[in-house]
């Protein structure tokens, strides 16, 4: 079946079986291999992309359901020489080891910081009616949908903390 997808501001005509996930469409049909396939069951987060401003698991999304939705992948966040603030921070903080989960981590973190700006609480927020204050505990909870098999979590949290301007970020120790 035919679907028109909007990805990183460009329009793509996809001709694919109805079973094609958004992740497989990106990687196998459109050559956008930045998004990674880890578990393919929504458990690891390495396929995370941003749809109409919200982070989603592209492996649990049918491509044919996504016409009219603005998709942003890691390729749309920045490029060599013009990295997004989170991409740059992940490099400087060594927020990875093998790097396989990194595109998903950065897409998830990008949308997560927008959720904070919109005032969304998390389950570790004490007062649900107040604007949440970002802390390392908040970042860990909000990023729990992205697994890192190399366990680079401390550096991932540092990278996100720096971009988010979290108080007490360990700048002096760098």
């Amino acid at each position: 079946m035919k679907t028109t997808l909007t990805i990183n501001g460009a329009s793509y005509e996809l001709e694919a079986d109805s079973r094609t996930s958004l992740l497989d469409a990106l990687r196998n049909h459109l050559g956008l291999t930045g998004s990674k396939k880890g578990c393919d069951h929504g458990q690891c987060g390495s396929c995370t992309v941003i749809a109409d401003g919200r982070r989603i698991n592209s492996c649990l999304t049918l491509a044919c359901m996504m016409d009219g939705v603005e998709i942003t992948t890691i390729e749309g966040l920045g490029e060599p020489g013009a990295l997004s603030p989170l991409q740059d921070a992940f490099v400087r903080h060594d927020g990875y080891q093998c790097g396989y989960c990194t595109p998903g981590q950065i897409c998830a973190a990008t949308a997560m910081l927008d959720e904070i700006k919109a005032g969304w609480p998390s389950v570790v927020t004490d007062d649900l009616t107040a604007s949440p204050e970002l802390s390392e505990a908040e970042i860990s909870e909000r990023m729990s949908g992205n697994l890192c098999r190399c366990a680079a979590y401390p550096n991932i949290v540092d990278a996100i903390s720096e971009v988010a301007g979290v108080n007490g970020w360990k700048e002096a120790a760098e």
């Binding site: 929504g42 987060g45 995370t48 749809a51 919200r54 982070r55 989603i56 698991n57 649990l60 999304t61 998830a108 949308a111 997560m112 959720e115 609480p121 998390s122 389950v123 649900l128 009616t129 909000r142 990023m143 729990s144 949908g145 992205n146």
Partner: peptide, 25 residues
């Protein structure tokens, strides 16, 4: 806002489930 203010149990239950990505879908 209404759920956070008047049905905290529901907001907390939802926020304790799945991941940020899955809750969006």
């Amino acid at each position: 806002d209404r759920v956070r203010r008047n049905y905290e149990v529901l907001s907390r239950a939802l926020l304790s489930g799945a991941s940020g990505q899955l809750r969006n879908m």
